[in-house]
Nucleic acid binder design. Structure first.
Lengths: 343, 343
DNA sequence: TTCGCTGGCGCAAACGTTTGTCCTCTCCTA
DNA sequence: TAGGAGAGGACAAACGTTTGCGCCAGCGAA
């Protein structure tokens, strides 16, 4: 039963019922009695306004899209959970998409979502510097917030980690323990955040008086295979680094697997600092020192930004878009036992 | 620009444009020339049919809801990824919700989603046997598929693990290694699947000629705290079990953390068999023997069932609902090194 | 020439809301 | 008693599609 049938049933007009059921009763001076009658009947007949009809009239459906590289990555799943929770409290639903860490998939997905009349979008862009992605964001009138990986030169605000400092912090752990030959397992070297983290580690080396060029670097992607082969590249060298920093959340898996193959003990023969806290980081032998991201705070900021932009775009259409509003959060060092002095 | 403006622009009627753009051109015998003209113009002006308008007319928006206890749990995030991928190929979007392993949250969320006019729902029910949940499913006319945890006595088809066999399989690993005093870390004892797994482990003990009552049991939830205290309950006993089975995906974390606190070496002082494969299961020291679920196959089956039900419910309204169509998948044993003989 | 058929397309209803505007009472005041 | 004001609702337009039906022109057949 829809609200017009309910109206007929009650002898009221559709508008009256609509105003009551959408909570605008007193704004339109509906009498107390009427409100009660309508609410009772709505309860009894299980009537709620049809969201599609309302959506058509309002021009939006109360749904925001969330486009992440891989929901299986704990960082993104935590992010998704926090975002969904916060948006839900404003009655907004979340539509999920995985770009599978693939840039062209991401583009086509974003294209589809842009035509889907969502209220807004939250995007964790895949790492390569895609001009297509940038221009889609620029051309679209939809409120968009970027997360995890900023995309310089777009109007979309972004929320991410203070990546360069974080990279510095990671390397410093190894340097402080006395390591001088250090490996660096990168994620996707095309992504802004990966590059920043990488520069951070180089900063740290420089500050310690070590030639940043001595850093043993490898890595070109997030998949198991890629991080595995990159780890091998680093750890199978004759002059094997005594410490390694993994710049992406998945990297630690490749590093651990390779260390296991080579029967390297941690931290005696190999020290590890890993980006992204995982539920199991503190629990394995030895507990892994990690660089954690304040996921919940970041999620909250994302939602705030999105809400603000959604209001703006619905009120005055041509408000001055403050371009490049970016927020950076400090990384958290979780110091544990995977870092020791070099043998 | 919408299709009616485009129609005006071209001198065609709205219906013609609509038929072309929704791919029903030849069904309505639109001429080749017209089709081309319309498609070109649509391309040029970036016009796609507004999904809300279409949704209103069709009565649905091409969205299915996915309600999981916790998207952070690797099992559910893998499931979500696979389901989203498969549904996307039919042009259907996925709306995500977390019930936070809380039964009342689940009920209220489900209620909201039922009014949202989704095409269907996929639910991984929270473990307690909620009569409310059951009746909401019964009363609703929306196509619903249950996953991971069957809910006996509802019309909704379900997809889950052959849990009893899986429990048996897990316990057999320990028994075969010679363990006789075995611990069992349960998840939520109210859930069907937890109960089945539990019965399975008891089966195995019985078959080995061991009194199932000798099983040391604890556990009442999925949170870190709960699995931690339950692990303590099991492992701090004077007659500490030499082997333990963790029945929920999260359980292994509690068991590992407790083992670490007690400085128990694995597998020498404690053998472990854990439910649910995790990315890190093979990588830590020692690699953990797990009972894995064929997630992708399960996801595919879920989508098939949902599609079938969505067709049914849109065609003949009162087709005979085959109640209780349940599918069970065999667990996969990942045999590794966390099981040894008791000291 | 007329009839019928069919290819090609337009008309208009329907989907279910929301909301600006207008109408109708009632009551109060001068 | 007439005039005005304000409270309480009704009317109808608009949101953008989809789709059953009907209309018209042209062509072949009788």
């Amino acid at each position: 039963m829809n609200i017009s049938e309910l109206a007929k049933e009650l002898g009221f007009s559709v508008s009256t019922v609509s105003r009551v059921l959408s909570g605008n009763a007193e704004k339109y001076r509906i009498s107390r009695k009427t409100v009660e009658k309508v609410q009772e009947a709505a309860e009894a007949f299980q009537v709620t306004p049809d969201p599609i009809g309302a959506g058509l009239r309002r021009g939006k459906m109360g749904i925001v899209g969330l486009l992440v590289p891989d929901i299986t990555n704990p960082f993104f799943s935590q992010l998704a959970r926090a975002i969904e929770l916060k948006l839900r409290s404003s009655g907004v639903a979340v539509q999920l998409c995985n770009s599978a860490e693939d840039s062209s998939t991401e583009i086509s997905l974003l294209g589809k979502m842009l035509t889907r009349r969502l209220d807004g979008m939250i995007i964790a862009p895949v790492g390569t510097e895609s001009e297509a992605l940038r221009s889609m964001i620029q051309d679209s009138s939809m409120p968009i917030v970027l997360v995890d990986r900023p995309l310089p030169g777009t109007k979309a605000p972004s929320v991410s980690l203070e990546n360069r400092n974080a990279g510095r912090l990671a390397a410093q752990q190894l340097l402080a323990a006395g390591h001088t030959l250090i490996g660096c397992l990168r994620g996707a070297p095309g992504s802004e955040s990966d590059r920043e983290r990488f520069e951070g580690t180089r900063d740290a080396l420089r500050a310690a008086g070590i030639d940043p060029e001595s850093l043993v670097v490898a890595g070109s992607g997030y998949s198991r295979e890629e991080s595995l082969s990159a780890s091998a590249l680093i750890l199978r060298r004759p002059d094997r680094p005594t410490g390694i920093v993994t710049l992406s959340g998945q990297g630690i898996l490749g590093a651990l697997e390779t260390a296991r193959e080579l029967k390297l003990t941690i931290p005696d023969q190999l020290s590890i600092v890993a980006f992204d806290e995982q539920p199991w980081s503190p629990l394995i032998e030895p507990p892994i020192t990690t660089i954690a991201q304040p996921v919940d705070q970041m999620a909250n900021r994302v939602v705030e930004l999105l809400n603000r932009n959604m209001q703006k775009s619905s009120k005055d259409e041509n408000s001055d878009r403050e371009t490049n509003e970016s927020y950076f959060f400090d990384a958290l060092l979780m110091e544990r036992s995977s870092v020791g002095s070099p043998s």
